[in-house]
């Protein structure tokens, strides 16, 4: 097997976007998972689909409409949840179905099925053009830089909202910023795995790395490594064996999760427990 895969422009673009998106998803995903918002990304991707359909309907570059619709919906639902106390899972169900319904409706209304529904559902990483690549990379880098800048208050806020508030962190503003970043990330991710599989990229690398019992920094680095590996290997395998890239990437992540779970079960990460027995301070 030679590396002719890298000589194609579409492959270079696919790998570049894939890697950047994988890093962004891992970072934002860890906070989503810890805040028990795991399915929020899924709901937002369905809303983004509605936004894309709106773009086609109005004849505007669909990514822009997707950005506008998802970010405003994400902020709106956060505000609504605060004032009406709708439970998180119900809010996600409403978002998910209404966003998707809007998409299907608008696509049917724009006549002529020139839009490839399949590529939105399952991703079209190999079809990414130069304009899309630049946009996705720029947006992802923006999200990564913002997350790095707000990491300290964001970690505190995710750990314990009330303590963060007493600590003087403006938790409401922070929450809106975070939700907007999540919405932007979802749109950047749609190209890679499609709206139906976005949750996998947000959740799987993070629950796998959380299993390993490390601190925050290591957990996020492990999560990033898992998802970048899955993206590179997944795209490569899908190229050589002519498989769907999105499915391959997600299945690789599932395999790593199951493998880690089995390893944990077999006691591979239990070094700490053994140390504890020899530690007089912990023997109460």
């Amino acid at each position: 097997m030679n590396l002719d895969i890298l000589s194609y422009g579409f492959m270079q673009r696919a790998l570049l976007t894939g890697i950047v998106v994988a890093i962004t998803c891992s970072m934002i995903g860890l906070f989503l998972v810890l805040k028990r918002y795991s399915l929020f990304g899924d709901a937002l991707s369905h809303v983004a689909f509605g936004g894309i359909a709106l773009g086609f309907f109005l004849n505007i570059y669909p990514i822009w409409t997707a950005f506008a619709v998802s970010v405003s919906t994400a902020l709106g639902i956060t505000k609504l949840r605060k004032s009406t106390k709708i439970s998180g899972d119900a809010a996600i169900a409403v978002l998910l179905s209404s966003g998707f319904a809007m998409g299907v409706l608008l696509i049917s209304a724009s006549h002529g099925f020139t839009i490839d529904l399949f590529s939105f559902l399952f991703g079209s990483i190999l079809l990414t053009n130069v304009q899309d690549t630049l946009l996705i990379v720029a947006v992802s880098c923006g999200v990564i830089a913002t997350l790095i800048a707000i990491r300290k208050p964001l970690i505190h806020f995710t750990f314990d909202e009330e303590q963060a508030k007493v600590h003087g962190i403006p938790i409401e503003k922070l929450n809106y910023l975070f939700v907007a970043l999540a919405a932007v990330t979802v749109i950047a991710t749609m190209r890679l795995v499609g709206i139906l599989l976005i949750s996998a990229l947000i959740v799987l690398p993070n629950i796998t790395s959380i299993l390993m019992g490390k601190g925050f920094k290591k957990t996020i680095l492990i999560s990033i490594s898992i998802s970048v590996t899955a993206v590179i290997v997944g795209i490569t395998i899908s190229y050589y064996f002519n498989l769907a890239p999105a499915g391959t990437i997600v299945m690789l992540m599932v395999a790593m999760f199951v493998g880690t779970l089995a390893a944990k079960h077999a006691g591979l990460f239990s070094k700490n427990v053994l140390q504890e027995e020899n530690n007089p301070l912990t023997n109460h």
Binding site: L30, K35, R36, F159, H167, K214, G215
Partner: peptide, 18 residues
């Protein structure tokens, strides 16, 4: 303190939040 039981923070991480 009610925190997510899986939260991947070490004791050091938690103290650093302060």
């Amino acid at each position: 303190v009610n925190f997510e039981p899986n939260f991947p923070a070490t004791v050091y991480d938690v103290v650093a939040m302060g």
